[in-house]
Design a protein around this nucleic acid. Structure first.
Lengths: 338, 338
DNA sequence: ATCATATTTGGAACCGTTTCCAATATCAAA
DNA sequence: TTTGATATTGGAAACGGTTCCAAATATGAT
């Protein structure tokens, strides 16, 4: 590995001059050529570490996600990384585990690595904590809306998504609709529940929820919650699951109780993860534009570095209904078990 | 952010002494206490960049994977990161895109970041290229066996996996078995094909493959390849797909041609990705212990750093048959379409 | 107390870059 | 030419640590 010093002596100039051609200072055409030639022949690559130490900027973005595996975060990382990479920056990722201590540790870790910006998908930290953090280091908040940090938040309109889902079920003639929610400590769960209520209430003859049962956003939780619903004797012809994972569990639970999907019970999910279209029946769901989320968050982060970020808030991302096979008209059901 | 200099003056010692208590040099108990106290009150955290510049070691491991999304690489990253993190090192990840140039760029990128070790999951680079690379920088090779780099390779016995799958189908009475392979440029595809052949040949009355058709390891490729199989009029009662993704596509194609799975055609996959158990029918498949792969690769990488890696090769990881619903006895099929 | 030896400490060079400041070269106008 | 302004260059001090070497101090045996 050759150093700037070697390049300088090879080209017969001072270190500072080499540095200037590297970073676009003013150098004469002649010396510029000489230096570039020396760089070429020595195959010189500036040492990132030394540069970072001198400039106090690392060109590294840090991202905190709940989990490294899983289709949702996978797409998020994939897209954000692509954008950031295009700008010759590095994205490093730390897992927050969806627990407050884990999230704090992850942030601490990334700061120790001297990231220039942080992209955060955190569920457990308070708004106040994030606002305080943003005074120390530039941050972009994903999947969450904090009014004080308007320009730095990229998030989905969860309530709208839930309304879309619920409205579809109502339109299809369902009157007894149950909701399988995420953990109620989480804001997105709350918003989806709110959307569920809103859609029911908006009807000419407002409907009551058949039931709302809390899950954990995992397949197992969806399975367990649905079993509970059935054990409690709740009557419903349609189920709105707050995410696709739980919808899988729900469908399996229904099947085991000899209820067919969608003939006996219609099911709608949320997220449109990769495998939703490959389930049987193909899952009707709400698309969560997660790739777009990743892209926009990365772009905001880049602007935050430039200082070109206007602090006006962005409109939330729009969820979209994806109609497949798991929801049918209530009257079409050939065995109206309700 | 406080510096080592401040700590030194606060504690009334030299910088070098502070450095010693940080890195475990010999210091008297008394001064050690003074220094630790100063570190505490100043909330001093050593600057990683400066340290790396001085020591020429970054404590960073680099990993190249084909893709950031996707269940397979997700688990791999997840597990490797956990292990590496436990040892207070950082894992950074670059996407190789399963193309030679992409893989080279990813490696180049990680080297520029001055990673201490590289964990590589690369399909397109030649053995020779990797052997050459390993002279420059310590590497661990995943999913691939290079005899010259025995101790640094962690890989699955693909052929055994394919034999397991094929043997199951044979045991279940199938005699016309088709194979949906991965891209034949890839070694794992070749090995799985070899295993397929080996299992067929090992029978008292050796069987011929009904067909071998090449896919791309994606759902779409599996779908297309299966359609082709059917269009060509190939007769088969069982299909061995070289991975679960393609098995999904295959099942969808079969359905569209009014063939039921498993009643008309048994299907077995490979990998046991997360959603395999959630398909209908639940997919019988070969477990690829990818988490274990990630863990072992990370451990090897750590040893490589210590210099405690004994160069003796490891036994390949063992695939395992996971029996679910998508394979049944041939004679049980209620409509023997062959 | 003395000496030899082992342990602890301080000082300074170094890692590879950027950047500030002063020095020099260049050039157009007087 | 000289002058002044401007563009280009070199030198040296950072950035925040580690590490080598020599000096200082402590330890223990005689």
């Amino acid at each position: 590995m050759s150093t700037i010093k070697q390049v300088a002596s090879q080209a017969g100039v001072a270190q500072s001059t080499v540095s200037r051609v590297l970073n676009g200072g003013s150098v004469s055409k002649r010396t510029q050529e000489r230096v570039l030639h020396a760089i070429e022949t020595l195959n010189f690559k500036p040492n990132t570490l030394a540069r970072s130490l001198a400039t106090n900027r690392t060109g590294t973005f840090g991202m905190v996600v709940g989990d490294l595996a899983g289709p949702f975060f996978g797409s998020l990382m994939q897209e954000a990384e692509a954008v950031i990479r295009q700008h010759d920056k590095l994205l490093i990722i730390a897992r927050g585990n969806s627990r407050a201590t884990g999230e704090r540790e992850a942030i601490e870790y990334l700061r120790e690595k001297r990231c220039d910006v942080l992209l955060l998908q955190v569920d457990e930290l308070t708004d106040a904590e994030l606002i305080a953090l943003s005074k120390d280091i530039p941050i972009v908040v994903m999947n969450r809306h904090i009014p004080e940090l308007a320009g730095q938040c990229v998030y989905l309109d969860n309530q709208l998504g839930a309304e879309l889902a619920t409205s579809l079920l109502i339109e299809r003639g369902h009157r007894h609709i149950a909701h399988l929610s995420g953990p109620m400590t989480r804001r997105d769960s709350q918003q989806r529940v709110a959307g569920f209520h809103a859609a029911l209430a908006r009807q000419p003859h407002p409907l009551e929820p058949a039931a709302i049962v809390e899950g954990d956003y995992q397949v197992e939780g969806g399975y367990a919650a649905t079993c509970k619903l059935l054990a409690d004797g709740v009557r419903f012809s349609a189920l709105f699951s707050a995410n696709d994972n739980m919808a899988i569990g729900a469908i399996e639970a229904l099947r085991e109780h000899n209820l067919r999907v969608p003939d006996d019970v219609s099911v709608i999910g949320f997220d449109d993860v990769f495998f939703a279209r490959h389930l049987t029946p193909k899952l009707t769901t709400i698309e969560y534009p997660v790739a777009e989320l990743g892209r926009i968050a990365a772009e905001r982060a880049l602007k935050l570095m430039d200082g070109t970020l206007e602090p006006t808030g962005l409109a939330p991302l729009a969820p979209r209904l994806i109609t497949r096979e798991s929801v049918i008209n209530h009257q079409d059901a050939d065995d109206t078990h309700i």
